[in-house]
Nucleic acid binder design. Structure first.
Lengths: 199, 199
DNA sequence: ATCTCCATGTAACTCGTTACATGATTTT
DNA sequence: AAAATCATGTAACGAGTTACATGGAGAT
């Protein structure tokens, strides 16, 4: 351990978490973290490549080159024993960040300053986004159920993937229900205003 | 508008959103954004003070000094008409970030590499955190109901604050239920293992 | 011919955190 | 006497985004 496990950014654990399941190239890791699968972490390739190099320097991953279709060889990374130990130890450490930044919530908080139409379109956009995401998650969940992933033990990587997927579904459902409740409230108040104007 | 509304970080809208409700000092704004009230945005004072200065330079807020208890005078900021217009316009713009980073979810995704005891303590910590947060939110919601804030129109800042609070409650409840489901699953698998060992 | 995907990397920049710094008033 | 709260600010660093750069393979 000595030096390898101090001061790692959370991104490093996300990469180790994916590499613990399967050896992947930087490109493949970037694909996984572009639009996060089961709603947990995202990163761009420009952040991932230097981080992988740093992790290799620390002995947490091992890179191996192979001829690739691009101008540079493809580098496939494999997690080391030290990397796996670092990852395992991290799970037990206290969680520092519990979210705390949500652009949609901030917009709604501020929406009293805007027109009803702007608020409605904001909520409609959010509803469409969450409905689409929920649809993708449900498809994935059904595939998990058909494959019996939900009955696997928690020591199986497929089960923990299923667990985070379930939270993703709960999250999208909760946001959808809230968007719809708010739309009803915002719509209802403008309707009653219209009714009042008719009188 | 000219120059004032281009390239503002989300933090600026969070600050404008609070200042649109009431004139506040940088310190008071930092208090509000330390541990976010209704779960939407957080920031430290070292980020807030320079951002307020930049916003004043752009004419979005107006600062006024008054004698304070510290070595420097207290500076109270008021939103300008330009600031309010900028805030209002922002609500209608498409939302760029939908979250995407969640340390607890990442830890659970990775927890198959760790001991059951580490996973259990991780989930217990999360459960305690979310239960405490939910308690605070429910207290606040009850106060809102007693004050009739839930029956206010969506053009009232107190109503939009209540709306984000409701989402906060839904969020905490959803996470709590999920933590408990996962704890049962993790606990159950270790129990069945014990039973299997007894046979 | 142009576009997208594969596959890597760097440079410049913005955003966010931790730590340093000052000093009066109030609480323990 | 020590600590916390009020109240502001800066410096150094770390994390994250956008844009630049290269070039082959396959699709439209």
């Amino acid at each position: 351990m000595s030096d390898a496990d101090r001061g790692l950014p959370t991104l490093a654990y996300a990469l180790l978490g994916l590499l613990a399941r399967d050896s992947l190239s930087g490109y493949a890791l970037a694909q996984q973290l572009r639009d996060p699968i089961a709603h947990f972490w995202e990163a761009r390739h420009s952040q991932i490549y230097p981080q992988l190099a740093e992790m290799e320097r620390r002995g947490l991953v091992i890179g191996a080159n192979a001829a690739g279709p691009g101008p540079r060889p493809r580098r496939t990374y494999t997690i080391s024993a030290a990397g796996l130990a670092t990852l395992k130890a991290w799970v037990g450490e206290p969680t520092r960040r519990w979210g705390g930044r949500d652009e949609l919530l901030l917009k709604v908080y501020v929406s009293w300053t805007a027109d009803q139409s702007a608020t409605i379109s904001l909520l409609a956009e959010a509803e469409a986004h969450h409905a689409a995401q929920l649809g993708r998650y449900l498809t994935e969940r059904d595939a998990c159920h058909r494959a019996g992933v939900d009955r696997l033990p928690p020591s199986d990587p497929r089960f923990t993937g299923y667990a985070t997927l379930r939270r993703g579904i709960g999250h999208e459902r909760g946001r959808l229900a809230w968007c719809r409740w708010l739309m009803r409230r915002v719509g209802a108040s403008s309707e009653s205003k219209v009714v009042a104007n008719r009188l």
